[in-house]
Computed example of a mutant assay.
Amino acid sequence: MFLILALIATLIVWGWWTYPRIGGLLFDLITRLEARLSRVTEVPVAIERMTLATFQGGARHNAPPLLLIHGFSADKNLWLRFVRSFVADHRVLIPDLAGHGKSGFEAGGDYSIAAQAQRMVEMLDASGIDKVHVVGSSMGAYIGTWLAAHYPERVLSLALMGPVGVNLPQPNEVEELVKQGRNPFLIHSRAEFDRFFAMTMASPPWIPGVLLAAESQTYIDRRAELAEIFDDFHDSPRMEPWLSRVRVPTLLLWGREDRMVPLASAQTWMAGIPHARLECWDGVGHLPMVERPERTAAQYREFLNGVRESCIA
């Protein structure tokens, strides 16, 4: 009887210990399959002081390339479903930002918005790319806007999804939690991860529990790293003084149920970039490219077509 109980206890402990690891292996397998379906491959790009992991693919003829920039604590995998709609006629470049994904973290590495934008310029140079259409999500939108304002010769257009980077006109759930010392990105337990995950999307796709367990463990393991990256980007200068420098066609895409960045922030962006076009979607949260990948791609395709027409005119 004792041996049976010991065996059951061992199986329970083994299952608890390996469950996130199994999820991690499954996640890697699914990512490789998604990348193949999206016709992109992993390409390391050496820049000053580090190497950035990227997905690259797509056509290399006349249409200018697309640069897709993910947000804080995310990685390049977020764009795989979205980019599937563009590889037939655009070269695409999707990096893991420094400190994220497979690009690696270095303590004291400077993860400010200005530094991350500079790395994007170095990556474009190393890839032999002159000008790009930039698409950014959340912190990636902050970086993309910094690029458009400070490196205008490199940016052809700007699409911003739930952008951070301006002073908030009203209290925000994330900012309030940070002030209380409860940064929702800095995860200590699966329960905290589940609350955080619920904040990111209003209509998330179905994700198996084993994958969520793996993602939760990744956040827990990287908590100290994410804290340093968050401090660097959160302390970066807000964009208001430079928004008027953004002269390229600009699309703002916001989910009305975005709990990370309130829709009220759009007022500041539209005041600073008055030529920008704002699209707001019901039933969508902070990550439209994940929640509605086909619709987001169609919206962006329409925007890109308008950019081309304005250039021809």
Rank of each mutant, 00 (worst) to 15 (best):
M1I: 09
L5H: 11
I8Y: 04
T10V: 13
T10A: 15
V13Q: 04
T18W: 15
Y19F: 15
P20C: 05
L25I: 09
L26M: 13
T31V: 15
T31E: 15
A35Q: 06
R36S: 14
L37C: 13
T41H: 13
P44Y: 05
A46D: 13
M50A: 10
T54K: 09
A59W: 09
H61N: 15
N62K: 14
H70M: 08
K76I: 02
L80Q: 01
V83A: 07
F86N: 07
F86Q: 05
A88E: 14
H90T: 02
L93F: 15
L93G: 04
I94P: 04
A98E: 07
H100K: 08
G101L: 08
G104A: 09
F105T: 09
E106C: 10
A107S: 12
G108R: 12
D110G: 02
A115F: 06
R119V: 06
E122P: 06
M123C: 03
G128I: 05
I129Y: 07
H133Y: 03
V134L: 09
G140W: 01
A141I: 01
W146I: 02
W146D: 10
A149P: 04
Y151P: 00
P152M: 02
L156V: 04
L158C: 01
A159I: 10
M161N: 03
M161E: 10
G162Q: 13
P163E: 11
P169V: 07
Q170G: 07
P171R: 11
N172L: 07
V174Y: 09
E175P: 04
L177D: 00
K179R: 12
K179W: 06
N183K: 10
P184R: 04
F185D: 01
I187Y: 02
S189D: 12
R190I: 01
R195A: 14
T200N: 08
M201E: 13
A202Q: 15
W206A: 10
V210F: 05
L211P: 01
L212V: 00
S216W: 04
T218S: 13
D221T: 07
L226P: 01
E228N: 05
D231V: 14
P237W: 07
R245G: 06
P249C: 12
L251K: 12
L252A: 10
W254L: 05
G255Y: 01
D258L: 09
M260K: 00
L263A: 11
A266K: 02
W269P: 00
A276T: 03
R277K: 15
E279H: 06
D282S: 14
G283E: 08
G285Q: 04
E291G: 08
R292H: 09
G306T: 12
V307R: 11
E309H: 11
C311W: 12
